[in-house]
């Protein structure tokens, strides 16, 4: 693979990452969100795969496969189960901030990510590192989704969006986070999602509907 192809593909994947993030802000249907999330996972796997090809590491290849399995396969599946259990009321009802404002905020957050990431890019200017701001932007957008979405599954999506961003930053910044660490991280994310999914179930048992904004029994 020539250097230019690598860069082109890399940028394409990163663009996909950002685009899917914005889409997640845009769309309200949980089912659509999950599909978009799977696409994003695929883009992430592409970034990992490209890194593996470019640096020629077997470990990275394994990581790419792992990401593909986890983020395109397992996590969307778990999410779908969570949403399916919710029942017909699966459409996201009015987020705390309306869509137009959300998109505007996403733009601002992306700019902020660019501004903040300058030192990161400057440390080792390269094709991969210059895409770091996108990863950071995805993290911030994910955080924003987390604080503006009412339903438990969509909060879950926000959390995973953040996590995708972090993984992207990890893949872009480095070729060699120790495999054990990477594995541990993946496992932890998986477990966190599992926990949240179980809790979603329990919330449904105890509260009936899973509007997180209604969880306000514990307060001062």
């Amino acid at each position: 693979m020539s250097e230019t192809t690598y860069v082109q593909l890399l940028y394409l994947a990163c663009g996909g990452l950002l685009l899917t993030s914005v889409l997640m802000l845009w769309r309200r249907e949980l089912a659509v969100l999950i599909r978009v999330f799977a696409v994003q996972g695929f883009a992430l796997a592409v970034i990992a795969g490209l890194a593996a090809l470019h640096h020629g590491g077997i470990e990275l290849g394994a990581v790419a496969v792992g990401i593909l399995v986890l983020r395109v396969g397992i996590l969307p599946w778990l999410l779908r189960r969570a949403v399916a259990a919710v029942g017909p009321a699966s459409r996201e009802t009015r987020p705390l901030v309306n869509v137009a404002a959300s998109l505007l905020v996403a733009a601002v957050l992306t700019l902020l990510a660019y501004a903040v990431s300058r030192p990161l890019v400057e440390l080792a200017p390269a094709a991969a590192t210059s895409a770091i701001p996108i990863g950071v932007a995805v993290v911030l957008i994910g955080f924003f989704v987390l604080i503006t979405r009412r339903r438990a599954p969509s909060q879950l999506v926000g959390f995973l969006l953040m996590d995708n961003g972090i993984t992207a930053v990890g893949l872009l910044t480095t070729a060699g986070v120790a495999l054990t660490v990477e594995l541990g991280v993946a496992l932890d994310v998986l477990l966190a999602v599992l926990v949240l999914q179980i809790l979603t179930g329990r919330m449904r048992e105890t509260f009936g509907d899973t509007d997180v904004a209604e969880l306000r029994e514990l307060h001062d």
Binding site: V116, F143, I147, R150, R216, H219
Partner: peptide
């Protein structure tokens, strides 16, 4: 009123602080 029980609000504290801190750093 700081502890209303809204998880969005609680996360918001973190989000705004993070953004503020990042702006400051930038």
């Amino acid at each position: 009123r700081l502890a209303t029980g809204s998880v969005h609000r609680y996360l918001g504290y973190g989000f705004y602080t993070l953004c503020g801190l990042l702006i400051l750093l930038a």
